[in-house]
């Protein structure tokens, strides 16, 4: 590829390139070296949605994001958890490095308010990460959330239990419990390197 063309492609976010020669934007470090190595932006892509498909909760799905969340609160950014399935237990969060004054927990009384709440907080520049357990979502809503994340520049994480073939989320991860930790498979990312699986050791 010619040098000017390469430059043009790399600098224009609107053009989808299968595999960029060099990641143009640095992602937020995930805190897991093995995962950083296989993610195209070497971390969580800011301003995008991550869809996490996990057969059940309690296999280490939060611990996957814990280092990035801790780093965000240290940088005086906000975290929002929307409709978590259980009580987020503060002693564990604090020992994981999260500052509780930067964490907001929302319990929308109606199921249909979850996407609205997520979109509202994602649009805020102040908000670094939004974790949501939305249950069923239609794909148009996911698209809206992806656009909201792009506008606000934060990372939105959708935790879902069912597996669908396509989604508007920029990154899709499949989680499985491993023998000593968590097995993360990248189903989709902004670079086609095929499905890659990495086993993370959680303590």
């Amino acid at each position: 590829m010619k040098e000017p063309l390469k430059k043009l492609l790399n600098n224009n976010q609107l053009i989808w390139c299968g595999e960029r020669c060099t990641p143009t934007r640095r992602g937020l470090p995930t805190g897991h070296a093995a995962l950083d190595a296989i993610l195209p932006e070497a971390g969580w892509l800011p301003g995008a949605l991550i869809e996490v498909i996990s057969p059940q909760w309690g296999i280490g799905e939060i611990e996957l994001f814990l280092p990035a969340m801790a780093a965000a609160t240290q940088a005086d950014k906000q975290l929002v958890w929307i409709a978590p399935p259980y009580i987020p237990y503060p002693p564990a969060l604090v020992s994981g490095g999260i500052s509780l004054s930067h964490l907001l927990v929302l319990h929308p009384p109606r199921h249909q308010d979850i996407p609205w709440a997520m979109e509202t907080v994602l649009r805020q520049r102040r908000c670094a990460m939004v974790l949501a357990w939305p249950g069923r979502l239609i794909s148009k809503t996911v698209r809206r959330l992806q656009l909201a994340a792009e506008a606000g520049g934060g990372v939105g994480v959708l935790f879902r239990s069912e597996h669908r073939d396509s989604s508007f989320a920029a990154t899709r991860l499949l989680l499985k419990p491993g023998t000593s930790g968590l097995q993360v498979t990248i189903l989709k990312s902004r670079a086609t390197r095929g499905r890659q699986t990495v086993a993370l050791a959680l303590h």
Partner: peptide
């Protein structure tokens, strides 16, 4: 930005109700 964030919290509270918006405390 801080005051913007407070306005967002107000908006959330208005739509979701006062109990729905909370923080955690150790």
């Amino acid at each position: 930005q801080g005051s913007d964030w407070q306005q967002v919290l107000d908006q959330l509270q208005t739509r979701l109700g006062e109990e729905a918006v909370c923080h955690l405390q150790l």
